[in-house]
Structures are given as C-alpha cells and as structure tokens.
Design a protein around this nucleic acid. Structure first.
Lengths: 132, 132
DNA sequence: TCAAATATGTTATATTATAACAAACGTTAT
DNA sequence: ATAACGTTTGTTATAATATAACATATTTGA
C-alpha cells in the first residue's frame, strides 16, 4: 500500500506547482516549469502525476489532458469527481456537491454493472467570460 | 451550417467501422483498418471523427481517447452523454437514462455558471468480467 | 542490517493529434 | 453552363501526450 502522508521529492515538486497554478496544467508545461529543479524527463513528471492521482491529491481533467489540485477535502481517493469547465477561458472548478455526489454514487445501471467510480465534466461559459 | 444528413465518403467509411465495432476504437486503429480503402493519413481520420462528433453520430470516450457510435436516438447533437466503462474488458455502454439526463441537465453550479453540456463516465467491472 | 518496496535518472520510442497548403468536389445563384 | 463559394480530400511534416525498459539509489520495516 502507498504511504498515506509523505510525498517524495519529485511528487512534492509537482504537487506544489499544480497547487500554485490558477488553472489546469499539462504534463509538459509542468516539465518545463520544473527543469530548474533538476527534473529532466517526462517520465519523472508522469510518475509523480500517477502517484498524486492515486493519493487523491490531484485530478486529471480528461477532456483537456491536464491536471488540477484537489480542492475537496473528502478526496482521499478520488472515486467521485465532478468539474465545471469554461469553454472560453479554460478555467476548471471542482464541484463538491453532496447531493450530486450521492445521486451519482447511488446510480445503478440497468444492465447490472456496479460502479466503483465516476468522473463528470460540465462545460459552459463562466461568469467572467460572459461579461466580455 | 453542416449538412444534416449526407455523409462524405471518408465520413461514411469511418462511421461504418465504428458502428460495426464491438467496443471503442482508437483513431490509429481506425486508420489501420481503412488503409485498404485508400485512406492513408491520420488527418483524414481525425477530420472525419470531428465531423461525426459534431453531428452526434459518434462520441469520444475521453478517458480512453477512443470513439464509439452513438446508440441513443436523441443525440442529434451530443450535449448530454453518459457512459458505463468496464475497467477490465474495456467495454463501453452508452447510458440513456432520462432521469439521469434531466437531473444533470438541470444541475446548476453554485458559482453561477450555466452549463451547456456534460459528459459523465462511470467505471466498474461488468457482469461478464465478474464471472471470470 | 539486510531484504523488499519505492523512487529516481535516463534514453528511447510509442501514441495521439494538429498545422499548413494545394487540389478536387458540390452546391447554388446567376 | 459557369463562376463563386464552402466543404472535403490528399499529403507532408511536426507537435503534443504518454509509456517502455533498464540501471541505480533511497527509504522502510521486519
């Protein structure tokens, strides 16, 4: 089992930059940003990303191939994720809505498949962008 | 505006192969399968895929970078998609559940963003795989 | 302390997707 | 019919995303 708490050097570096970012970051943009810290290869980034996802510290936004920090306290392991994505400015917001989460976690497919996990991505134009 | 009905040659070829497939197809696997029909370059596949998605004939499974035919009659333009994905055999099923669709289409983010579209992916182990 | 597990560094390569441009095709209005 | 327009095609090149494989180092725990 993975250590619950301690992050390795590279994991911490990658997590830091994702947490500081205003929006989702792509793997190679992370790479370019940490080259001064001695990380040189994509592999090092992807490995850290994988572990951080496994720990629930970050999430992958599948429609963008990009990564955001987890802002929801109950994401120890991320089985139930929902995001709000602006199609204009690319802003991503994690949605934590207990009702939504319960509704979807309790959803059962007619064909009898029991779900372990879901990911939901909403798209629209955010308030800021509507004003422009 | 796009023609609503008629598919171009390449679009039809790509749609055919996706509709015949048992599971989601990746762009390059489509390419390899249609080379005998004279399609030679990725670009030709991706262009057809884009148009087909725009028409609601196919959907992209974001977590797999793969494409499936639309099985839901009301997907003229796909603003509300949900899928059930087996993590073992990779099978993908489009979920058409009016309640779910209404619930999510009516969902409003606290932060005031109005959604135009959503995509939901459920993950689990399908019945077939559970037996093994 | 030594074995196992985890993390790192590194090179190479696979996979997924788009840019850019020229030519052909199909509408539709005249 | 034919000119004008938008769409589709063909093509070459390249960008962007992600993993394989292997050698070494570090951490952890019995």
């Amino acid at each position: 089992m993975a250590r619950a708490q301690t992050l390795s050097r590279n994991q911490q570096i990658v997590l830091d930059i994702i947490q500081k970012a205003k929006g989702p970051l792509k793997a190679y943009s992370i790479l370019f940003n940490v080259q001064k810290k001695g990380i040189k290869a994509p592999q090092q980034i992807y490995r850290a990303l994988d572990k951080l996802i496994g720990m629930g510290k970050i999430h992958k936004i599948e429609s963008k191939n990009a990564f955001v920090a987890c802002r929801s306290s109950d994401c120890e392991i991320s089985k139930a994720t929902a995001f709000s994505i602006c199609e204009s400015c690319e802003m991503v917001d994690e949605i934590s809505d207990t009702k939504l989460s319960k509704y979807l976690s309790g959803f059962n497919h007619k064909k009898g498949m029991k779900f372990k996990r879901f990911n939901l991505e909403f798209f629209g134009i955010c308030k800021k962008c509507k004003k422009d």
